[in-house]
């Protein structure tokens, strides 16, 4: 069984991931065994998100080398020799990463390995101490000490990255629908009616059509995280950044969020995913990076990294997280 994840979702019969239309993966009305239990919302993946890139989904089978969708795809995100220190403590000691369009790069590693910091440096929520970040082929202008020097460029580039946080960070004073249309309407200046229509589509997509008027504090963690993913998608981002999206969730809520993320990966969305869910990383990633003490200890295609790890540290790590 390659896909999924948690005991309560084990009832969902896994399908071979290759060359299947995404719609049959989770939602096939003819096959009772793939219909989630009634308590779980059904995510119809038959309708792709408007504006989603339509890349071939058999990413993994076609990349014997670096686990990329292929060298022909343009580079979505490139991180080069990134360093980051907090005071005298150097958290990242020169790490690099390349995500081409359609890639799913998973970053794994123990606590304090720097994996979240690395992700947060990509959109400058943390200011790097050195190195280079390139988003959609555009280098982020930085001063010598690492702070971004062009505020407008940074804002524009951030708008092309959808960030999903560990603690959801939905705006508590806004309803779910208001959360989804906030940036499209007030920053991207999309007409409100248009933004709302698109937001409703996205909410239906993540199984929250009925929750558009709810305030985040009155929803479960899983619902909040799905809403947060929808909010990121409402920006129509070129790439998604996931910072441990299931770490704050009760175990029985993890599956519903991972299903949504998996649906996005199957659609050919570019994403960088920091996660503790090893099985999920193996299932969904095209390339896995193992970070230890601020350096990349090992990286490669998931089957190689999880199936035949070379470094002793990674072997040890995989044993502990089991």
């Amino acid at each position: 069984m390659r896909f999924l994840i948690r005991p309560n979702t084990a009832a969902i019969k896994p399908q071979p991931p290759s060359n299947q239309a995404p719609s049959t993966l989770l939602h096939n009305p003819d096959d009772k065994s793939v219909t989630p239990p009634a308590s779980l919302p059904i995510y119809s993946l038959a309708k792709p998100i408007p504006g989603a890139p339509n890349l071939p989904k058999q990413r993994r089978d076609h990349m014997p080398d670096q686990g990329s969708t292929g060298a022909s795809q343009p580079i979505a995100i490139r991180v080069s020799a990134l360093r980051k220190s907090f005071g005298t403590h150097e958290v990242l000691k020169g790490v690099s990463l390349t995500a081409r369009e359609g890639d799913v790069v998973a970053i794994i590693g123990g606590s304090g390995s720097g994996k979240s910091t690395m992700l947060r440096c990509v959109n400058f929520l943390e200011t790097p101490s050195g190195g280079e970040i390139e988003i959609g082929g555009e280098k982020v202008a930085m001063r010598a000490e690492g702070t971004p020097s062009d505020r407008r460029q940074l804002e524009r580039l951030r708008q092309s990255l959808g960030m999903v946080f560990q603690n959801f960070n939905l705006w508590t004073h806004k309803t779910v629908l208001e959360n989804l249309i906030e940036v499209p309407v007030h920053v991207l200046k999309i007409p409100k009616a248009e933004a709302e229509a698109r937001a409703r589509q996205l909410l239906a997509r993540v199984g929250l059509a009925e929750k558009e008027g709810a305030y985040p504090a009155f929803m479960s963690g899983g619902q909040q995280q799905r809403a947060a993913i929808a909010r990121a998608l409402a920006m129509n981002p070129k790439a998604m950044l996931f910072d441990e999206p299931t770490s704050a969730l009760d175990p029985e809520l993890v599956g519903e969020v991972l299903q949504v993320i998996k649906g996005l990966a199957d659609e050919g969305r570019t994403m960088i995913l920091v996660t503790h869910e090893m099985k999920f990383a193996r299932e969904v990633a095209s390339h896995v990076i193992y970070l230890h003490n601020g350096i990349i200890e090992e990286e490669g295609p998931p089957d190689q990294l999880f199936g035949a790890p070379k470094s002793d540290r990674l072997k040890q790590f995989l044993k502990t997280v089991g």
């Binding site: 929520l125 505020r151 804002e155 951030r158 708008q159 705006w171 940036v183 920053v187 990121a232 920006m235």
Partner: peptide, 9 residues
């Protein structure tokens, strides 16, 4: 951070 990450001025 959520606002910043989405490029809000």
């Amino acid at each position: 951070e959520a606002a910043r990450a989405m490029g809000m001025p």
